[in-house]
Amino acid sequence: MSALFALLMIIVLLLIPIIGTEVLGLNYVFGVVIPYAAIAMFLIGFVYRIVRWASSAVPFKITTTCGQQKSHPWIKSSSLEAPHNTWGVIGRMALEVLFFRSLFRNTKADLREGPKLVYGPSKWLWAAGLVFHWSFLIILLRHFRFFAEPAPFFVSGLQALDGFFQIGLPIIYLTNVAIVAAVTFLFLRRLYDPKLRYISLGSDYFALFLILSIAASGILMRYTGFRADIVDVKQLAMGLVSFHPVVPETIGVMFYIHLFFVAVLFGYFPFSKLMHMGGIFMSPTRNMANNNREERHVNPWNYPVKTHTYEEWEDEFRDVMKAAGMPLEKEK
C-alpha cells in the first residue's frame, strides 16, 4: 500500500517536468530555478540538520564495544571494534562509512524444530548496500565532467575503470548496471521479507523509487534514443556553477526529467532519513573511544541531585549498627 503510494508520488513528480517544459515551456524554471532552489535547500538544510544535532549535548560516552577493551598489555585489544583512542575511532568510522562494517556482521536467525535456533551469515543487505552506495558515489563523481572545465583528473580515470569492458556504445558503465541491480534488490527485499514489509514506510519506498528513477532517466538518456545533447547539458551545468545561467534550446525532455528528479532528491535529502549520510559521523555509539575510565567525559548539563548522604544514613541506622558493633562516625 505504502509502496503504491510512493509509486504514485513518483509518477506525479515525473509529470511535473514533462508538463512544465513540453506544455508550458518553463525551461528556465526547470533548468535554472529549480536546480538552484534544490541545491540551496540541500546545503542549507544539511547544515541546519547538522547544527541542530550538534546543538544537542553528548552527556555520556556510550560507545558500543564490539570487541576486546584495552586493559592489560598482554590481552590483545581490538582497536577497531572497541577503539581506545582517536585513531582507533577514525579507523572504526572509516570501516563503518567506507565498508559498512556493522552490516557485514549481519546474521540471520533461523528457528527450527527442536526447538533449535541457528544463525547464519547474511551478507546480501551488506553487499547490495555497499554496491549501491559506491556506485552512486562513482556516478556522482563521473558527472563532474559536466560541472567542471576542464574535467577533473579523476573523471577520466573513473570513466576508464568503470567502462573498462567494451560493452555497447556508448560503453556501458558497470556502476550503471550495478546501481539499478542493487536498488532493485533493496526494493524487492522490502516487498519480499514480511518483517521488512511491515516496518517499511512510504518514505522508504519513495527514496528507493526516486533513486531508481534518477538512474533510469539517466540511462535512457545515455543509451537510447532519448538523447540530450551533452554539450548543451554542460553549458547549462557550467552556467549554473558560474552563476551565469543559460538555458540552451535543444535540451530534450528526458534531461529535464532527470534533472528534476535529482533536484527533488537534493531538496528532499535534508528532511528525510537520507540524512544518515551526515548522521553516521555523529553517532555517539560509534564515534567515541572506549576509554571511559581513563579519560573524563563531561556532561554539560549535569545538575545536582538529591542523594541519601552517609550522615543521613548513619543517623537512620546508628542504633542497629552500634548493636552489631560496626564502626560509626558519630557515637550518637
Binding site: I167, G168, T224, R227
Partner: peptide
C-alpha cells in the same frame, strides 16, 4: 524515427 530505432538498436546489443 531515428531516435526510436536507434534506441532499440542499442538496447538489443546482441
Amino acid at each position: 524515427g531515428f531516435m526510436k530505432v536507434s534506441g532499440l538498436t542499442i538496447l538489443g546489443i546482441a
